[in-house]
């Protein structure tokens, strides 16, 4: 008799302070019926991976507009693996040059959304990717 919900962690790794997109996205996911944990600015990959594991989210969404994505996103993927939580889907978004997207995908990021992406697109993607 439980009710299922998709659970998502939206996280801002690194020192980047651009949170408009992360917050807009968090709300859009909430309004699509998901339980969203948003942990605020300046998260280390260690904090993000630990949080994702404890919270047993289906998806971790990393938002970075400061250009440190190549350093930070793959590190989160690695740490999740170390926690035995590599079933968690990792998504990325923000100011990410086209040529970096394939690098990120190779290193375990499932999809990357860039400026202009619609939040509905993200909602659809998450719903499609998560089997409850």
């Amino acid at each position: 008799m439980g009710e299922q919900r998709i659970r998502v962690l939206i996280a801002k790794p690194g020192l980047d302070g651009h949170d408009r997109g992360a917050k807009v996205l968090a709300r859009a996911l909430r309004d699509a019926g998901m339980e969203v944990i948003y942990t605020g600015l300046r998260q280390t990959p260690e904090q993000i991976a630990a949080t994702a594991t404890q919270e047993d989210v289906h998806v971790v969404g990393l938002s970075c507009l400061s250009g440190a994505h190549l350093e930070l996103f793959p590190r989160v993927v690695e740490l999740l693996k170390e926690h035995g939580a590599d079933d968690i889907l990792v998504l990325g978004g923000g100011t990410i040059p086209a040529e970096d997207i394939s690098v990120l995908k190779e290193r375990g990021v499932a999809e990357v959304f860039t400026p202009g992406a619609s939040t509905q697109e993200v909602v659809e993607f998450v719903k499609r990717s998560v089997n409850l």
Binding site: M34, E35, I37, Y38, Q47, A50
Partner: peptide
């Protein structure tokens, strides 16, 4: 929508990586 923004953890950031602490956010789900 049935969705929720679970925000309590924000105040517990330093505990996130402490292996002696387990934090879980929960939606009241109605």
């Amino acid at each position: 929508s049935g969705g929720a923004l679970l925000g309590d953890r924000i105040r517990m950031q330093e505990l996130a990586t402490d292996p002696g602490v387990f934090i879980r956010s929960m939606g009241a789900r109605g």
